[in-house]
Structure formats: structure tokens, C-alpha cells
Nucleic acid binder design. Structure first.
Lengths: 153, 153
DNA sequence: AATAATTTGTTGCTTTTACAACAATATTAT
DNA sequence: ATAATATTGTTGTAAAAGCAACAAATTATT
């Protein structure tokens, strides 16, 4: 129980430290493979592919980035012609919605395939059911934190 | 199984997203309470309290920050007279080791107490055994990732 | 109707993080 | 002995994250 008196032994800090490894792994793989986009852009494409035609702010809430950062990622993706933006309305408000271009869909598919073998080999030491269990725990913990944390997105 | 084809449904990304909430919560609490130090400095003090008299690079490896960042955190802590640095040797090499001042120890204890109630109320929905289990999973996953990720610290 | 507040997206700036290069010293190789 | 390599810490700079303020348009309040 003495351990618990240290912040670095809390669940919060343990998750943060583990996330750093995940982040470093991601950017190292992307750097090594020279895929033309970075991790953030890939994550954005992947998110868009599961949520067609959402506005920028809704996207920001999904990728947990603020509006300026989200806008800049989209600028870059648009320059690379992987997405297009168009004006639309949501609750009578003018918004910019996003669609992936065919090239964007192709690129996402392609990179997903390339990444697969880099990301698959690692959690092989965890069973699939254990992975699912940890993911559920993460989701559950996020839901708890959502109530406490002001996200400002 | 279709879900698995998306990066955003991998364990990596789920952990990263959860860590963002942890990070935001931490900095929001520190901001609100005006404690005189930031989260990074607190984590550094907490780490030091568990590893007496280590050199800067070894500290960097523990807090997962690079050497420049670690040095700058220590500069700030030294200015605030929460730590002191002294020259020593490790394997015949000149290093700078760190000790916490009495004020540093007092400050750590004090802030730990203040934080306790902010951090405790949240994972109340998780049982203590579940928390321990998730922490073990995080540690285990980090050990797997350690083999794959070049940390450069 | 006029004012205030809200939503969405952008711009600009500050802080933080990441990274390469360097100095100083020690070890290893030639 | 000399040169090459490695370790530790610092400095400087480039990239990214965080945040406040703004513009434009809509809804709510008075």
C-alpha cells in the first residue's frame, strides 16, 4: 500500500508512460517507411473512414485534438489531395465537412496493410481476448475521466 | 473482426487516447490548485524520491524524457530550491547527481496529499484489484514495446 | 428589435517537445 | 600512442501542442 502514495504508481501515470512507447513506436515506423503522411494524418484518415461526412469540430472531438490542430491536419491532407472539404450546414450552422478522395481511400488502405505487420507482431504475446479486455478497460476508464476532464474542443 | 483493420481500434491507439485524458486531467488539476510546480516537475520529484542519488540520464530513462528536457526540468527545480545537484562519478564518468532538499521532500509530501483526493475519487468505479490488473497489463505491454522501440535517451 | 451568447473555423503566439550537434571525458581499437 | 567510439550533459533550433482572440453566422435573451 505504500506504493500507492506515489503518483508514479497510479493508473494515470502508468497509462501515460505506456502511451509514450506507443507514440514513439508509431512515429518511428512512419519515419522508417516514408509513407508520405505522418501518424496524425493517418489517424485522421482512419477516423474519417469510419465517420463519413462529419464537420471539423466533430472530427476534432474524435481524434482529441483542438480545432486549430485539426484544421491544420486537414489543410495538409487536402494539399495532398487525400481529402476534400465542402461547405454544409449542421443544425443550421455553416460547417466544413470532409470527404475522402478516392486517392485518400486507396492510401489509407495501402498504409493500413503496410502497418499491419509492424503492429501485429508485437501484441502476439498477449492473447486476443486479453487485448480486447485491456481495450475495454481503456474505454471504460476514458468514460470515467470524461466526466471529470474539461476537454475544450 | 472488421474493426481490427482500423488503426484507431488497436490497443496502441486506445492507450494513447486514454493517456490524453490523463494528461489533461493532471495539468488541469495542477493549474487549478496553483501549486508552484507543474506536473512534470512533480513527477520528477516523485521519481527522485524513489531512486536516491541517480544521475540525470538515469532519471531521464525513468521519466521517459530526453536529456535536454530532463536537464531543463532539473534547472527549474534547482531554482526553486527543491533539489540540488552535485558532481559525482558513475563507471568512472563524470555525472551530475541529484538530491532532494528538505524543502523538496516537504513539497512532494504536501502536493501528494493535496492530489490524493483529486485522483482518488475517480477510479472509485474500478475495484482496487482491477486497477492493479490494468497497471500490470500496462507494465507488461511496455516490456514488450521496449524491445521494439528505440528510445534514444 | 437590439443585445448577448453560442457555434464553427481560423490566425497568431507561447510553451513544450523532439532532435541534431557540440564539449568534455573515458574507453576501445588500430 | 593515436584515432575512433561511447557516455553524459548542454545548447540551439525546428516541429508540435496548447491556448486566447477573432470573424462570421445563428440562436437566445431582454
Amino acid at each position: 500500500m505504500i506504493k500507492e502514495q506515489h503518483y508514479i504508481n497510479t493508473l494515470y501515470y502508468q497509462i501515460e508512460q505506456t502511451a509514450k512507447y506507443c507514440r514513439y513506436l508509431g512515429s518511428q515506423v512512419f519515419n522508417k517507411l516514408n509513407l508520405g503522411i505522418n501518424v496524425e494524418e493517418f489517424v485522421t484518415l482512419d477516423t474519417l473512414s469510419l465517420h463519413g461526412e462529419i464537420c471539423q469540430r466533430d472530427l476534432a472531438k474524435l481524434i482529441l485534438k483542438d480545432r486549430p490542430a485539426t484544421g491544420r491536419i486537414l489543410n495538409s491532407l487536402e494539399e495532398k489531395e487525400l481529402i476534400e472539404r465542402f461547405a454544409d450546414t449542421k443544425n443550421n450552422r455553416l460547417v466544413r465537412k470532409i470527404i475522402m478522395t478516392n486517392n485518400g481511400k486507396k492510401t489509407l488502405k495501402q498504409i493500413t496493410g503496410i502497418l499491419k505487420k509492424y503492429l501485429e507482431k508485437i501484441p502476439h504475446e498477449f492473447s486476443q481476448s486479453k487485448i480486447e479486455e485491456i481495450k475495454n478497460n481503456m474505454r471504460e476508464f476514458r468514460e470515467i475521466l470524461e466526466k471529470e476532464v474539461e476537454m475544450n474542443i
